[in-house]
Nucleic acid binder design. Structure first.
Lengths: 336, 336
DNA sequence: GTGAAAGCGCTAACAG
DNA sequence: CTGTTAGCGCTTTCAC
């Protein structure tokens, strides 16, 4: 251990003593607040630079009741090992936070257990929270609201008071649905994940809207909601095929991956026998043969926007209720 | 905002005043340190429970020079959107940390820029660090060593003083290689990722060992090191095929995904025309058709072990230099 | 067994 | 323009 680097670290008092000034003056030189002569400031700044002084943010936090940390809450029950979504969000948030001298604390919760989130809040470890998904009855959101904690939601919510960062899934999904119909599909099947996820509700509505816009009335035997596990996917795929669907639209890449696997199992070829598209895209779909047509979102951008917005909120700035991140519809071999 | 929940939070002083005791006594009741009568302790504890008092960890940290935070450093240059490896590590680390009343701060670095890591360290925001990959000349590791910061490496290192959590890649890869040879392969190709990653060096050595154990001398035209981008993979695959290889072993799932794509492009079927195996497995390979034989590691367990070990180090306990996490060789359709 | 007082490193009135 | 003082919430000698 280098004594003077980590243990016996230089404090504002050391600097003050060394320079024959008061700690207040040093504090002012650093913060830029309050009156101070250019000469003294420069002298202090120079000394600080040369001696590699680093203010102790923790102590600063104690004094001004802030932590300069934001919390990112990640669900640990969401097939975390199959989707890099949260990891990508996190990268964006880290980038946004770091560039504003904030750090990122990660907590994990499930839809029924928010112990860890609670601890971080109760311990005063963060100044605000980013929720990375939106559930219908979200106990995490409820907890934060009740305790008056600033938070930003990556996702959608009907509550006008919640600050949201999202893509316009409804429009995007409607658009992709329209495209499929216009490119000749006569009977679309829709496989949708958990209806507890707000995003899936939006996707579903987007699908309905796309159909409606093109005068198509989706028949009941083609719509499968709350499709969660492998066997549900397999059943839905089989039924859709029997009903004569010529296209399967999946609400996300996880479902899509399973759909593709099922189609392969029963020797149905894509796009020859049936077309496939997905309302959310990850690298898994790009690497598939054939690659899959899908709605694509720059997830890292979601994170960047969320981080930026939360820190602005913490600093008392006005932020817009909803920030929309662009999506893109990428056409690939699965719908040719 | 509920005044008494977040803003005007109960402090140790409030409790003391309310109970007609001194802060010292309250502190002792909570920490269990120092002499205190059972009666008073119970009285304090009861009050604390009823009034939902939560000690301010930040203030505690200031006083005893700890933060009760650990840092997890994640590379932001590592195809983060294609591999959930770091996310899975993180889940494990969070679990280990939370159960010990620690929280997790995430930083991101590249192989040439460790600004964010430095800031977190300099700001005294964490008590130790977990590095989630191991490079040959790792400036992050160098920085931590030079500054005497406790850290744990998820990966391997020749330095005996570094605390490591890893799987025995060398043995695992040797074993999988042996299996391929024993199951009839006569000429193995090996495609390996960046040689800057220690893990790839271990995998390479494992491959060589597996060959050697079976009296096979791998020819030069079958070994491709530092294969990084798509076109390098394509070239290597093409060359391997020309050389008459009957099996391709990939150092990780990313390379494997690209190998499979290339094979598909040029209409070479797996396992009919050539077998394929990978030294690291993620869901991408399981969902492939056919699924791919690979070495599988419980990545979350790596994280759990790393978190546990780091916190033990911070608490001054002795920890073993290397913790080995089991691997498993899972045989699938790609090598049938 | 309990309390007073000093201190962790920094900020913010309030004086001068 | 600069310094004195008190205080953020908690821990820890050192007395009593």
């Amino acid at each position: 251990m280098k004594e003077n680097e980590t243990n016996t670290r230089l404090t504002i008092n050391d600097v003050a003593r060394e320079l024959g000034l008061s700690t207040t003056t040093i504090s002012r030189a650093i913060s830029g607040k309050g009156r101070i002569s250019d000469k003294t400031r420069e002298r202090v700044l120079e000394y600080i630079n040369e001696h590699n002084y680093r203010p102790n943010i923790i102590a600063k936090g104690l004094a001004d009741k802030r932590t300069y940390n934001i919390c990112v809450n990640i669900p640990s029950d969401a097939n975390i090992d199959e989707t890099p979504f949260f990891q990508c969000c996190l990268m964006g948030i880290c980038e946004a936070a770091s560039s504003r001298d904030y750090d990122v604390v990660v907590t994990t919760t499930t839809d029924t257990d928010i112990t860890y989130l609670k601890r971080v809040i109760n311990n005063h470890k963060v100044d605000g929270v980013i929720l990375t998904r939106s559930l219908v009855n979200d106990i995490a959101a409820k907890f934060l609201k009740e305790n008056g904690i600033s938070y930003v939601l990556i996702g959608d919510d009907t509550d006008k008071n919640v600050i949201k960062i999202d893509s316009d899934h409804l429009s995007g999904c409607a658009q992709l649905t329209s495209y499929m119909i216009m490119s000749g599909c006569r009977k679309l099947a829709f496989l949708c994940g958990s209806h507890e996820h707000i995003v899936n509700r939006n996707r579903y509505n987007g699908f309905l809207k796309g159909c409606e816009q093109n005068g198509m009335i989706p028949s009941k035997e083609c719509i499968y909601l709350d499709v969660i596990n492998d066997s549900q996917v397999a059943h839905s795929v089989d039924k859709a095929l029997k009903s004569g669907c010529d296209c399967i639209i999946c609400s996300d890449d996880l479902i899509c991956t399973r759909v593709l696997r099922r189609l392969d199992e029963i020797n149905v070829s894509v796009p020859g026998d049936i077309k496939v598209a997905s309302f959310y895209n990850s690298s898994a779909l790009e690497n598939h043969t054939p690659p899959v047509t899908a709605l694509t979102i720059n997830v890292k951008e979601l994170g960047v926007a969320a981080g930026k917005t939360l820190i602005e909120m913490i600093n008392g700035q006005e932020v817009s209720e909803m920030t929309l991140i662009d999506y893109e519809i990428v056409l690939k071999g699965s719908t040719k």
